[in-house]
Structures are given as structure tokens and as C-alpha cells.
Design a protein around this nucleic acid. Structure first.
Lengths: 194, 194
DNA sequence: GTCTATAATTCGATAGAC
DNA sequence: GTCTATCGAATTATAGAC
């Protein structure tokens, strides 16, 4: 990102950069990539629009930086093998609970579904974070299949709860979701290829 | 596709109407509601754009007719209770296998995410078809929760396989999906509120 | 390089001839 | 039933000022 090495520990630009990213995430989540304008984002961050271009090059660069999320998945090889499913669903629900996780996930899901070109980013998150986490448990050769099944359940939950807003799925409490979905994830994670 | 009773003798307009709907489904699936123009759809069907208006009133009417899908879910109360999960996943996979089911489902997913006004239609399909099917099995008071869980898994599968195209999920065979996901649906369908 | 004002195009929709 | 002609809104493209 930074072309030149940082000479000073805390540069003055860090605050501006963070403010831009915060405004960008909120706008992208609320209005989508197309409708969220650089001008509006800059206004939210109370800076000049040209500053956005200076920091992130163009709108694509800003978007990439805004949705660069770290899922922070737990180490499945170090946890109690009987509670892996619960561990996963709880972490997933936590991500969706507050900013910036909820905004980033919502934006990623929306844009990936709408824009074919941006679906690559969703695949990248999967390949770089979900798959490696699952690789640390069970047969590595079978990890792609198991991680794919886990993604299908978790993304489907997010889709129904936060995007489509199906009333029964919205109405369910976090604890009820843990009770219902943890066993599914547990089975997917520990299942053998049929 | 809630077909009209075959009582009416084949009118001359039926062919035109069917041609319009076929073209509309393809365009809506490929380009979304906004970008798919009435003019382009009419051109595909080799008819005049004004015919589309005449048959369907306006663009919203055309869209509603194009995505009026009949999931044709099996009667869960009449089937072998031990194979309900398999029954559901097989029917779902069949819908996505060929037109017009795959186009309609893809269109519904995409538009429901982009256009808030059209998201109601996705909820309507759920409320009118998935929920009633589940209502025919088990405790009615608990049917919303169970049908919501089933929707989350099935839509998540469609999302990962047909929209995001996560490689491991795309690579799985139908039979492998049945083996892995049928038990999940079976458990959701027969589970009790926790 | 940005911003803005304006021209050109495209689209949904309507009216009416045949 | 089918088509032509056209309107008004919205989007896009372009040009020129700062």
C-alpha cells in the first residue's frame, strides 16, 4: 500500500485514511458500489474528494481497501473437537453483529451477487481464510468439500437473515441459531467424503 | 409457472406470450431487471416492443410474470418420513438444472438483493410455497423456524454453487450434495424448538 | 485534473392508424 | 392484434471553464 516507508510512527494521514474507510464502508453497505459516490464518502469524512483519490488511487482501490476483512476464524486444531460447530457459528454471528464486520460482509455479499467481476473477491476471502481454517482439521484432501459445505450454510444464513430478511430467520435469536446450526457445521467439518 | 387451465383453446397470442416470457427470463437472468430492456426482450422474441406492453401492462408486470415460478415442492405429509431431506434437496437441485427454473431463481436472487421493492417477491415465494410445504409436516407453530432453516441451507447452496461459484461447491456432484445436505434438511425439518 | 453545463442517447410508456 | 410515431424522464457523453 504505502509506496514509501514510514519515517514517522504515527503519521497525520492515518486518521484521515481511517475516516475515509469508515465512511466508505457505511456508504457501500447502504447504497452499493455504484450509487455510493466518492463525493458523498468524502463529505461524510469531512475531507476533500481529491484526498480519496490520493489515498486509494480510484474508486476500485477504495472499495478493495474498504472490504479487506479479516474473519479472524478460530484455530480449529486447538479447540475442543466436540464444539467446533458451535465455535464457527458463534464467530460468524459475532462478525455480523457490529461494524465494520456487518457492513463489509453485507457489501461483499451484495456486490458479489450483483457484479460478476466482483465475485472474485468473495472467492478470495473463501480461499484465503475459510479454506485454510478448515485445512487445520481432518483430512486435508477433503478440506475443500467440507469448507464449501460450511460456507453454503453460513452464507445462506446471512443471505436469509440480513439480505432477504425472511421474517422467520430474522426473528430467530442468536442462541436458537447456535442450537440449530452448530450441529450442521459440526457434521460438515467432520464428515468423510461419501 | 402457475399455468392457466388448459380449457382455453390455444389462442394465437399464446405463442407470442410464451416467446416474450422466454426472452424476458433469459434477459433478466443475464442482465438484471434494470439493464434488461423491453426493447431488447422484444427484439429477442422478434416482436414489436409495444406488444410487451400490451400483454403485460408495464415492465413490472412483465417481470412478475417472468419470475412467477412454481417450485412444485413434494407433499411432505405423503412421503416416507425418513427420506424427506433427500426429497427436498433432489427437488431443489432439479429446479436449478435447466430453464426456466435456473433463470428464474437466479433472477429472483439477484433482484431481491438489488431492488428493495422487488425483494418482496422473494419473500412471497418463500411465504407461499416453502412455508406451506413445511406446514404439512410436524408442529405447525414451529414451521416458520424450520422452513427458515431449510431456506438458509438451500439458498446458501445455490448462492455458493451458481452465483459465487466457489470452486469446491461447483465441483461437487449432485449425488455428493444429496449425501451431504439431505441429513441437514432432514434434521431441520424434524427438529423441535430449542 | 476537477467540476459543471449541456448535448446526445436510451428507455419506458402512450396515442392512434390500420 | 400489430405497428409507427413520439413524449418525458433518466442516463451517458462531451466540451469548456476553473
Amino acid at each position: 500500500m504505502n509506496v514509501e516507508p514510514d519515517q514517522t510512527p504515527a503519521r497525520r494521514s492515518d486518521g484521515t485514511r481511517a475516516a475515509i474507510l469508515e465512511a466508505a464502508r457505511a456508504r457501500f453497505a447502504a447504497e452499493g458500489f455504484r450509487k455510493a459516490t466518492i463525493r458523498a464518502i468524502a463529505a461524510d469524512a469531512t475531507i476533500d474528494p481529491s484526498m480519496v483519490m490520493r489515498y486509494f488511487g480510484n474508486k476500485d482501490g477504495l472499495f478493495a481497501a474498504a472490504v479487506d476483512i479479516d474473519l479472524d476464524l478460530p484455530d480449529l486444531s486447538a479447540a475442543d473437537p466436540d464444539t467446533l460447530g458451535e465455535l464457527l457459528i458463534r464467530r460468524f454471528l459475532a462478525i455480523w453483529e457490529e461494524p465494520p464486520g456487518n457492513e463489509v460482509m453485507l457489501t461483499l455479499l451484495r456486490t458479489a451477487i450483483t457484479d460478476d467481476a466482483l465475485a472474485d473477491r468473495a472467492r478470495a476471502v473463501f480461499a484465503e481464510q475459510v479454506l485454510p481454517a478448515v485445512l487445520r482439521y481432518g483430512d486435508p484432501a477433503d478440506a475443500p468439500r467440507r469448507s464449501g459445505l460450511i460456507a453454503s450454510q453460513l452464507l445462506g444464513l446471512a443471505l436469509c437473515r440480513h439480505v432477504l430478511r425472511l421474517p422467520p430467520v430474522v426473528a430467530m435469536t442468536s442462541e436458537q441459531l447456535v442450537i440449530d446450526i452448530a450441529p450442521t457445521l459440526q457434521r460438515y467439518l467432520t464428515s468423510k467424503h461419501g
